[in-house]
Design a protein around this nucleic acid. Sequence first.
RNA 1: GCGGGCGUGGCGGAAUGGUAGACGCUACGGACUUAAAAUCCGUUGGAGGAAACUCCGUGAGGGUUCGAGUCCCUCCGCCCGCACCA
Length: 874
Amino acid sequence: MADPLLISGFSMSSSVERYNHRVTEPKWQSYWTDKRCFESHEDPGKPKYYVLEMFPYPSGRIHMGHVRNYTMGDVIARFRRAAGYNVLHPMGWDAFGMPAENAAIERGVHPKSWTYENIATMRKQLKSMGLSLDWSREFATCDPEYYQHEQAMFIDFLAAGLVERKSSKVNWDPVDHTVLANEQVIDGRGWRSGALVEQRELSQWFLKISDFSEELLKALDTLENWPEKVRLMQRNWIGRSEGLLLRWQLKHAPKGIDELEIYTTRPDTLFGASFMAVAPDHPLAKAAAEKNEALAAFCEECRRMGTSVAAIESAEKKGFDTGIKAVHPFDPSWEVPVYVANFILMDYGTGAIFGCPAHDQRDMDFARKYGLPVLPVVGPREANAASAAATDKAYDGDGVMINSRFLDGLTPEAAFDEVANRLEKAALNGKPLARRKVNFRLRDWGVSRQRYWGCPIPVIHCKACGIVPVPKQDLPVRLPDDAKFDKPGNPLVHHPTWKHVHCPKCNAAAERETDTFDTFIDSSWYYARFASPHAGEPVDAKAGRYWLPVDQYIGGIEHAILHLLYSRFYARAMERTGHFNVSEPFASLFTQGMVIHETFRTHGGDWVLPSDAIEKDGAWVHAQSGETLTVGGVEKMSKSKKNVVDPDTIIESFGADTARWFMLSDTPPERDIEWTENGARGAWRQSQRFWRLVNEAAGHAPGAHGPKGLPLRRATHRTIAAITDDLSSLRFNRAIARIYELATALEEALPQAAADQSVAAAVRESADAFTLLFAPMMPHLAEECWAVLGHTTPVVATAWPVADPELTRVDEVTIAVQVNGKRRDEIRVAKGATREQLEPIVLNLDAVKRALDGKPVSKFIVVPDRIVNLVCAG
RNA sequence: GCGGGCGUGGCGGAAUGGUAGACGCUACGGACUUAAAAUCCGUUGGAGGAAACUCCGUGAGGGUUCGAGUCCCUCCGCCCGCACCA
């Protein structure tokens, strides 16, 4: 990495000494810490502003993605603080999770010490960035002081009926004796052990997020300051559908089963039904399989296929005819065959469907494969009824009902209602044949993990009393420090004493729950804990009312669904159990782009670190070996491709301000930003330029304003207004472009300042404003500049500059003059010039005369203060 | 397959339906210097022209409009999300 301080030496053209970030940055960081500049306190007299960036997982060291994320948050925090808000800007650690446990297994380091050591390293790194964080509120989710509240709330949720224990299928690694997340199953094998993953039924804890499906969906409409993309993703994830539960009478079914309930969103297509299909785990399938070996084998095959990746590969629809028949609800003489099919999911709807091939592509594929009838029942409005039958393409558009007896001629929508109304009134086995049902794709949240490094689930299993919550006075249930990681499986299960306890109810010997919580629970309420991180309850009522919700939340798009949806649910669950008073935790959400970088490889295909790649005569070579390198694509920084740049190195050689400035310049914050060395050097040069500029301006005293200083004053105040606007809406790249414009204006005015007192006064005013305007982005440089300008209170205690409306007012405007929509000239006129005033000026312009070429003007369009367009024939 | 987004100079990107390319990076030329670095000045969408200036130009084609990067339709390309959800 280039070191600008070393390259540049020390002789400079101007008398100003070079700005040295290595001295200045630590100096101001200690100042801010010593004066406790960023510690927040509730102040009902001031408007509050809570800025939060998604807290980091303490993986070891910070990466450039953190630098970008935390810089954006810091700019907002500093800007809002200067603008008079009481700002809360905290930081903590999402500290539970698998990597810590993996480190324990692989290297024998205890997860606890691994985690806290990483936190210490990363805290130091974050501090070197000069972030305006309230470190007094810091916590890690693995602190018992934090997770005890999580446990207490779980007990409250249990009492409130928000928790359920049920059996669920999981990916089980038979070698590691552990449950795997879907993304840990690669080609049907455990990612670590390589063993074939089995599907196992385990009793697990679930949080009943599905109780809130409708509300979580509806409230998305109120989140106007969330990206539309995220709201849409959540909408799709929740997946609301309106349909009908419909029971069909069965013939030739196994004993004790005489009907099949299905779920459909298209009851209008009922007369197009040609088969029924049930999931391989459906009770009907299981019952039928008992007396049918071939069917049993088929179901078993489907079950094995169920394991993630393999299932997606074989998109082929397969079924097995059970021989059972279902009777059509509107025609006792009409029977359709019942299949077991591999594409039917047991946990959606009722795990059973009726197939209407003409209007559903999956059903069509299935019908063609097994030679089942295809009868179109919805026709495009004008087409004739029979035409659709011959194709293999299902029609799912709107149209008009055909081949459907009493529904013929209706729209599908009206037919839906007609079918629903009739079947709701009809009866089968003494109950209505059908009822309307709103269904959701969203399922309950399984929170049990068979792991050590997580928050223990505070319940006790007693043979006599069943499940007994740990009494609150016994919390926290602490993780034992002396766990061993030498055997596969959950160390909490193997621990000699930890799980053996007495039942709180009957005092008999009992066992602790050895599962721990999904770490998404930890991050589902940490934002609330920051309001009162030392309170005896999860959230202090007064502090919560004051600080919550988060005004601006910033993080990666990868959390668009799970983390953000769980947090929204958690807020509601906490609200219901009296811990909280807001249902939506994040008023505004911003999702920032990734940091990307060029990739380098040797001819052998090995990835090479950018710091080992040097440019030589237009080609890239390896710094040590001299081997020629190929330059690959620009991709997300990742350890595997080695295209990473270490924040420590950047901060050491260029300074935190330069790194921050780079992260905000040029690229809009929501897009991916490419880290380039040239860009970083450019940012560094600009910081030096600002330093020199302010130093030169500092030689001029403030004073009375006069006409000669007016242009610079106008530029200054217009910039204040524009940047205030840009920062309010997170358009950092535009704010920076405007700062450059002001720097240029200031630079141009400086030479005249010695000769004219009013220019000097304007320069001085401009330099002050300029410094305050870039301060949120480059806070250390700004403090140093501010001191040079003679101020005795620091920038962090100085109010944001306010634009004088007198000076932002525009008196004269440039109007473009077009002929037939083409720009021919431009004129400067007084603001608000009328058509009558403009017409003679415009018609007299040479360029206009040339363009008109003597032709008469047929239309004279005036857009006040913007444009004039002359329309002429020909 | 379904849903969403995006295509503007060598590059990152500006642009309430109203002067396309602000601002920055790169590159090139020049000044300063013994030299370099740093700094400063200039040029930098394409074509033509000595210049004034003219023509073309926002993925392609069409449309609406006095006027389209922006709105509408069709197509091409790239990116992202969901993926048997009945």
